[in-house]
Amino acid sequence: MAGKLISEMGLPTSIANIFAARNILTAKDALLLNEFELMELLDVDLDAVKSSIAQISASVCPPYQTALQLMQERVDKEYLGGHFPTTLKGLDKALFGGIPFGALTELVGPAGIGKTQFCLKLSLLAALPTSCGGLNGHVIYVDTESKFSSRRLIEIGESCYPQIFHVKGMAKEYFSLQVGLWFCNQQHFLNSPRGCSKLSSLYCRTNDHERHVKAPRRDALGWHVSFLKSLAELSRVPIVVTNQVRALSTNHALSYSFQADRKSELARNRDISESHLIPALGMHWAHAVNVRLVLEAHSGQRFIKLAKSPISPPLSFPFIITSAGISLLNDDGMEVSGTEINSILNEGGVIVSAGEE
């Protein structure tokens, strides 16, 4: 805006001609000078200078908005600040409506815990018509591990929405238009920033990494996580990503002096030490996500834990996986506190910390 021409700002012709004659052509040229310098250069009175500067400033400065006006605008346009219900009532209540729009939501947990099942259910719900509780939206599902199963997606649909999926040809016709797939391997995704421009729709499931992720690969994710977060915020769409877990050595995990007692305990118990797990993509990624859902297993039961949210308390919900996808066993949720919030539990009673890397 600083380069906008003064001749295009609607000043009186006589004043605009004087600016042009003195080689003051843009808003920047005029606003870098004080009123007295302009009076001297233009040879006009102070009132004329003040009037001209006010008009130039109004032309190049965007109108301001107060925080109250921004909040009211968000309320008036509910879809810009809404939530996408997951149909898991307890989780939706804890998230004040579901997966938030304009934010990056992460699913983290060990392989086979149910992350793919959760993503398939979300893809299904996003593409369903609003009359069935969906968003009637479009989905981009980025699969770097070839785990997407259209057969499983239809199985979930048939169990949850028979009125749509039991009509011959309806599911195939509908979802061929609504769900877009992008299959690529991890290395191609990491080395292809241009590929991220394809993520301009509703969901993204990306980078469900193997257990051992090297530092250079994590560093390569910096551009991608920034892009995804900007895409969510600017387009006001919910984006969901997944994250694996990996083992962390005792020396790396407990490197502070106040952790000496815990370090000695792990050294004595090799089973716990060798099973110490953290999210695979590291702390840079962890700080970038807005909401973190941890899927874990302990005491013979699977749990989905709301570990990070700007508005919600940490809660844990037991769940099972059925033909209809993920289903909660308890909508009330169990409160978690202290180290339990950032821990990841795996079958066998192993406590793993997500916040000590």
Rank of each mutant, 00 (worst) to 15 (best):
M1F: 04
M1C: 04
A2H: 03
K4I: 11
S14Q: 06
F19W: 11
L31E: 01
L33N: 07
F36R: 05
D45S: 13
A48R: 14
I56D: 09
V60L: 05
P63H: 05
Y64H: 01
Q65M: 10
A67N: 06
L68H: 07
L68D: 00
P85Q: 04
T86R: 06
K89P: 00
K93F: 03
A94H: 07
L95F: 03
L95R: 06
G97L: 06
L107P: 03
L107A: 03
F118P: 01
F118N: 00
L120D: 00
L122R: 10
S123I: 03
L124M: 08
T130N: 02
G137H: 08
E145D: 12
S146H: 12
S150I: 14
R152T: 01
G157A: 09
A171W: 01
Y174F: 07
S176I: 04
F183M: 11
N191A: 13
S192F: 15
P193S: 02
G195W: 02
T206E: 04
H212Y: 12
A215E: 12
W223P: 12
W223Q: 11
H224L: 12
R236M: 06
V241D: 02
S255C: 14
S257T: 05
Q259E: 13
Q259P: 09
R262K: 14
E265Y: 12
L266N: 13
D271M: 14
I272D: 14
A280Q: 04
A286N: 09
A286Y: 11
V289A: 09
V291E: 02
L293E: 04
V294D: 03
V294P: 04
V294W: 05
P313G: 01
P314N: 06
P318Y: 04
T322L: 06
N330S: 13
T339W: 07
I341F: 05
S343Q: 07
I344A: 00
I344F: 05
G355A: 11
G355N: 10
